[in-house]
Design a protein around this nucleic acid. Structure first.
Lengths: 220, 220
DNA sequence: CAATCATTCAAGACAACTCTTGAATGTAAG
DNA sequence: CTTACATTCAAGAGTTGTCTTGAATGATTG
């Protein structure tokens, strides 16, 4: 084959590695923090063997790296530019009406849920005490790293803990990324209960990628 | 399926559309300017029917748009963010040793050919008359748009037209993109002939995407 | 309206991807 | 050294992508 097509085939291989919903899901989970195969299989709802094979596809493409630690293999994103690539994919995908928009309309019946709060706006209003920021991911992911000032209320517990939220403030919810379903559902639930709620424009990986501070541990 | 996986499947579909060397090639050609199916088939070295099918795959993914004009259908990139996506793909791909680097080493035997001249450095030295900028793409692509001050010397004619080039100046060559083979081969040929030559860091699409001026027509 | 041309469609052969199952490997602990 | 455990490998069935060939569609031209 020609050198030109060889080069393009190498890039195409990276693209093909992104061309599967489960693998994109695994990348989103890895963006929350490094994980073992079993942990990823659990989060993604796949069998261990299948997860392992997907991870190897991602590794062949240079998107993730695996390191043995004891009897586990810990996978991690190979570099931050992987997040940029997925973000670029999302940007193009969002424009394509017959894909993303339809899904959002069908499942969330909420075009208004699309308008999100920017990082800059959040920081300003958080400093002024005007908003309550909630992290609706599971506790383990929160502990791995979260936005300073955020309260961890996993989506499953949100309804039961509505009373914990200050009465007057606006609520901003975030989770794993710009299209993570948890924050969408949290906002929908909160609005149903009469609260003023918005999504944050990105999740934890985007916050970190923007060079902003992180907090760790089980605080709050 | 869950809404989450539906969303990811939509993004994965876009990625799969990028997961073929010929389709990446077609996108690079479309980045030079809008083209008919037959023109693209000719440039990419594919049959018309096959080109049509690849273009439809790209269109389904929202990457390109087709408009009928007379008896032809003219395809174009759907938006500039497609260039950003391909650029992000290239960035990640470049890091992955076993793909890109090996191809470059094998075919070009020239790691030093990798260091490219930045747009900023080019403009400075071009103003000072220190470099000759050559566009080694075919004449029709040059006519569609080129970097102001560039001389069009298609790669096939380069050896015959060496005498046209000023003797003392350094030569900078560009073509269709950061990994377009034409500029690599032009630099290799020029160095073989004892000239000081470098690639430009990007091709015409990157120049345009950076918001820099374009010239059109057959001048020079 | 018949002829021509660019593009798209349809069908078929072949290759690649995806998931499951069960076995194999490699590491740690008893 | 045996056992237990996390991960990977291997084989197989079903699905999807790719390219070729020849026909069909849609638009212009004489």
């Amino acid at each position: 084959m020609s050198p030109k097509l060889d080069l393009l085939a190498a890039f195409a291989g990276v693209a093909r590695a992104l061309g599967n919903a489960h693998r994109l899901d695994l990348l989103e989970h890895l963006a929350q923090g490094d994980r073992s195969v079993e942990a990823l299989a659990d989060k993604a709802g796949l069998t261990v063997a299948n997860t392992s094979q997907h991870l190897q596809a991602l590794r062949r493409a240079g998107l993730v790296l695996g390191t043995r630690r004891g009897k586990q293999v810990i996978y991690r994103l190979s570099a931050d530019d992987v997040l940029d690539l997925v973000a670029a994919l999302r940007t193009v995908g969002e424009r394509h009406a017959t894909g993303v928009r339809r899904v959002v309309d069908d499942y969330f019946h909420a075009r208004d849920a699309l308008d999100a709060v920017s990082f800059a706006a959040l920081r300003e209003r958080l400093d002024d005490g005007l908003v309550t920021l909630i992290d609706v991911r599971p506790a383990d992911e929160f502990a791995d790293g979260h936005v300073p000032g955020a309260v961890n209320i996993p989506l499953a517990e949100l309804e039961a803990r509505l009373g914990d939220l200050p009465g007057r403030t606006e609520i901003v919810a975030y989770c794993r990324g710009p299209w993570c379903v948890l924050a969408f559902e949290a906002v929908a639930l909160l609005r149903e209960k009469g609260r003023s709620a918005h999504r944050l424009e990105g999740g934890l990986p985007e916050w970190r990628r923007a060079g902003l501070d992180l907090a760790t541990g089980h605080a709050q």
